[in-house]
Amino acid sequence: MSAEATTHAGHASSLPISHEKVGMISFLVTEAAFFTTLIMSYLYYIGKSKTGPQPADVFEDISVTIISTVLLLSSSITVHLADGAFKKGKHSVFVRFWFLTIALGVAFLVGTAIEWHGLIFEHDLTIATNFFRHDLFHSGRFSRFPRDARRADDEYSLLSGPVATRPARQDGKCGVGFVVLAFC
């Protein structure tokens, strides 16, 4: 028993890619299904807001958004480079790109925080007001995930949420709580 039991490797007939990769791809499919649902929701609800602010009102200046997005996408490249360096055993290169990735991630978070601060406190736009909030939530929350998932997320980062009609109100507390939640 013992010798054979430990030598059985099996799996000669299986796919040429590893089960880790298949698992990761399957996981990305679940992510895609998740975000597709949010996109469908956005398409379903678009234009149904009866009260402002509308996207055009709050995104007059999207420079911060663009910069944040560029930083986020760049971090995908740097983490990829770090990964490659790690595999080649180039430790110092790895460390450099690794910390660059973290720095880009932090910069993205700061940019997003600035953006959200503006939305919440200048435009009084929280999730209870109308649109926007909840996609920002999703893009933020998952963008710290493994690298491929992150790329997918970013494309969706400007999607929007629901309609709301309760008069614009509140001090944005739940929106702020949300920001906190989003980055966990």
């Binding site: 929701s41 009866k50 999730i127 909030r133 629901p162 709301a164 739940c174």
Partner: peptide
């Protein structure tokens, strides 16, 4: 969180 996706009391 006070959103109104499915709350039919809210128009839209």
């Amino acid at each position: 969180l006070g959103s109104h996706f499915f709350d039919t009391q809210s128009p839209g």
